[in-house]
């Protein structure tokens, strides 16, 4: 299962690296969202700095959606879905591999956005350990839930509109948790952030378990 996961993750990441879509479109979009927030909220009144945790995670979710859509659109072309099914790979392995590939892309996006808010919103960065752990756990939760709901929406004409409707309400607790944890870290009270990390950990585990068991039946159908 782990070997299959690494194979699928390697394939997806190689595809992304060679097509440069994540680099040329998703990453600039993420930065664009940061600039749009500055237009929407007056940058001179310190609002941006105060709202940094929330804006940061909303930007991660929106640009992450693009990365997720991409992860499934590469499978829908040329009957790749059938090829993946015929390949004999463990469905749970395929799921975990997709989660890993999406997760790594999300982490790269988060680093980029982190530099973006530090520079553009002049937010002082404190509480490094909590920030890093929050980002890791939230990334696993977003990638796992996103991959599971991504395959629910995959291969349909309405894919682009269906995935956000399904995924964003489900990720609301992750948005709340990661935002509160970041607020705690940046506000100098890290102890308030750790329960949120725990909640996000529960969500991550729930979706990984659901994906490992649910991916097989979802791949079986036409």
């Amino acid at each position: 299962m782990i070997r299959d996961a690494l194979l699928v993750a390697g394939k997806d990441l190689r595809l992304e690296w060679r097509s440069r879509v994540a680099l040329n479109q998703v990453a600039p979009f993420a930065l664009l969202v940061l600039v749009l927030f500055a237009f929407a909220l007056d940058p001179d009144r310190g609002l941006l700095e105060k709202a940094t945790p929330g804006l940061y995670w909303v930007a991660v979710l929106f640009s992450g959606l693009l990365a997720l859509q991409r992860s499934f659109s590469i499978e829908s072309a040329d009957g790749n879905r059938d090829a993946l099914r015929l390949s004999g790979l463990d469905p749970a392995g395929i799921f975990l591999g997709k989660v890993m590939a999406v997760g790594l892309q999300l982490l790269a996006l988060e680093v980029l956005l982190g530099i973006g808010v530090a520079v553009l919103y002049t937010t002082p960065i404190t509480g490094w350990i909590l920030l890093l752990v929050t980002a890791m756990v939230a990334t696993v939760a977003i990638a796992a839930a996103g991959t599971l709901y991504g395959v629910v929406a995959a291969g349909l004409r309405v894919r682009e509109t269906l995935l956000p409707l399904l995924l964003l309400p489900v990720l609301a607790p992750v948005l709340i948790g990661s935002t509160r944890a970041f607020e705690a870290a940046l506000g100098g009270t890290p102890s308030e952030g750790w329960p949120w990390v725990g909640l996000m950990g529960v969500i991550a585990v729930l979706y990984i378990v659901a994906g490992v068991f649910g991916f097989g039946p979802l791949m079986e159908e036409s």
């Binding site: 399904l166 309400p169 607790p173 948790g177 529960v202 729930l206 659901a210 649910g214 979802l218």
Partner: peptide
């Protein structure tokens, strides 16, 4: 699959 996760999701959203 979505329905299966409905109640767990409602509970998690509620808690958070």
């Amino acid at each position: 699959i979505v329905g299966l996760l409905l109640v767990p999701n409602v509970m998690i959203v509620r808690k958070s």
